[in-house]
Write a protein that binds this DNA or RNA. Structure first.
Lengths: 210, 210
DNA sequence: GTCTATATAACGATAGAC
DNA sequence: GTCTATCGTTATATAGAC
C-alpha cells in the first residue's frame, strides 16, 4: 500500500468529494438512515471536516440537491428568456431537456427521499418545495403564459395547468424508481405520447365548421 | 374501572377492528415503523390474535389496502361496464368519483407508504402495482379505448395516455400529503382545470378552416 | 366436557448501542 | 466487533361459548 499522508489539505476538492459521497449514500439509504460518519468515511475525511464545509446534515443534503437541480433549472430559465421561436418549439426544447434530466438516476432517488422523509424534516420539505419544485413549476407556467400571450395556447391558469404538464413526467419517473422498469411505463414510449397530449391540451381553439 | 373480562370471543368483529387500528397507525407512522404490538394494543387484542386472522404484517397491510381500494375500483368498473352515454360524460363520472376518492385522507397516506417503502418490501410493491395501480390504470385505459372506438377521442395508445390522465391526480394528492395544503395545488382548483385539459388532450380532430 | 378464540410467553433474526 | 434490545413470528396454555 502506498504511503499516504494521514492529512492532506485540499480545500478546493473537499466539498465536491463530500457531496459526491453524500449523494451516493443518501440515494441508497435515504436521508435519516445515512450516518454522517459513513459519508465522512466514503469521502475520505473526518466528520469534523464535513462540518467545516456544511452547517448540518440537512445543509449537506440541500447543497447536493442544489448542485444537481440548479444548473438544470437555470438552463431551462435561460432557454425561456432568450427564446424567439414559437412556444410549441419552446415546449419541444423543454421536453427534450426534461427527457435527459429525468433520466439521471439520482434525480429519481432525490424525489423519493423528499417524498418519504419530508414529514420528519420540515426544513428539507420547505427547501425542496420552494427552491426546486415550485421553481420548476413556475418555469412551465411561464412557457404556458407565453403561449397564451402569443395566441398559440388557449387561455387558462398557467400555474394550475403546469401541474397537468409536469406531474406525469415526475410520476412516471417515480414509478420506474419504485416498481422498476416496466414496458407499460417505459419513458421512451411515455414521454413522446405525453408531449403530444399536452400540446393538444394547451392548443388554442380553432374555428370549426359546425 | 369496569370489570372487563380478560378474554372476549368476538370472531366476527376482530378482523375489522384490527384493520381499522392498523390503518390508523400505518397512516401516521408508515409501514416499517409501525409495530404489530401497537396495532394489537389499539385494537384491544394480543399480537397472536392478529396472526389468527392475518398471515403476516405485510398481509395485514395488503388486506387494509384491498378493503379501501377494491370497492372503489369495482365501482368504477361497474360504471364503465354499464355505461350508455357519451364517453365525455363517462369521463365526467370518473372525474367526480376520483374527486371523492382522492379526498379520503388515508388514500394519500397509503400511496406515500407504498412509494417510500416499496424498496424494502418488494412483496407489497408487487401487490400494489398489480392489484391497485395497474388495475386503476387499466380502467382509465378502457374509457379512452371506448372513446376512440366511438370516434369521440383521437387514436392513441390507451394505456400510455391513461398515465397522462391519472398521474397528475395522484401527484396532486401526494403533494398535499407531503408539503401540506397550498393554494397553488388546491385540488378544488386543480381537478376541474385538469379535467378540461384531458378532454382537450383526448378530443378527436375536427375539420378546420385553414 | 369439548372445541376454539384468545392471551401469555418464548424464539430467533436483525439492527442499533457502546 | 460484541452485546443488547426490539420486534415479527410461533408454540402453548387457558378462558369462554355451547
Amino acid at each position: 500500500m502506498s504511503a499516504q499522508p494521514k492529512r492532506q489539505r485540499r480545500k478546493e476538492a473537499r466539498p465536491a468529494e463530500i457531496m459526491a459521497a453524500g449523494l451516493k449514500l443518501f440515494s441508497g439509504r435515504g436521508f435519516a438512515a445515512t450516518r454522517l460518519e459513513d459519508v465522512a468515511e466514503a469521502a475520505g475525511v473526518s466528520k469534523a471536516t464535513i462540518y467545516l464545509y456544511f452547517d448540518s446534515k440537512a445543509e449537506l443534503f440541500k447543497a447536493i440537491v442544489r448542485e444537481i437541480a440548479s444548473p438544470r433549472l437555470g438552463a431551462i430559465e435561460s432557454l425561456i428568456d432568450g427564446y424567439q421561436g414559437s412556444t410549441v418549439e419552446l415546449l419541444t426544447g423543454l421536453h427534450r431537456t426534461l427527457r435527459d434530466v429525468v433520466g439521471v438516476p439520482e434525480i429519481g432517488a432525490i424525489i423519493k427521499i423528499v417524498l418519504s422523509e419530508a414529514g420528519n424534516f420540515p426544513d428539507i420539505a420547505g427547501f425542496y418545495r420552494d427552491e426546486i419544485a415550485f421553481r420548476g413549476l413556475r418555469n412551465v407556467a411561464r412557457i404556458i403564459q407565453r403561449g397564451i400571450d402569443r395566441g398559440e395556447f388557449r387561455p387558462c391558469d398557467p400555474l394550475t395547468t403546469a401541474q397537468s404538464v409536469i406531474f406525469p413526467i415526475i410520476m412516471n419517473r417515480l414509478i420506474q424508481e419504485v416498481f422498476g422498469p416496466m414496458p407499460e411505463t417505459d419513458p421512451q414510449k411515455f414521454l413522446p405520447n405525453h408531449f403530444e397530449f399536452i400540446l393538444r391540451g394547451l392548443a388554442a381553439d380553432k374555428e370549426v365548421i359546425q
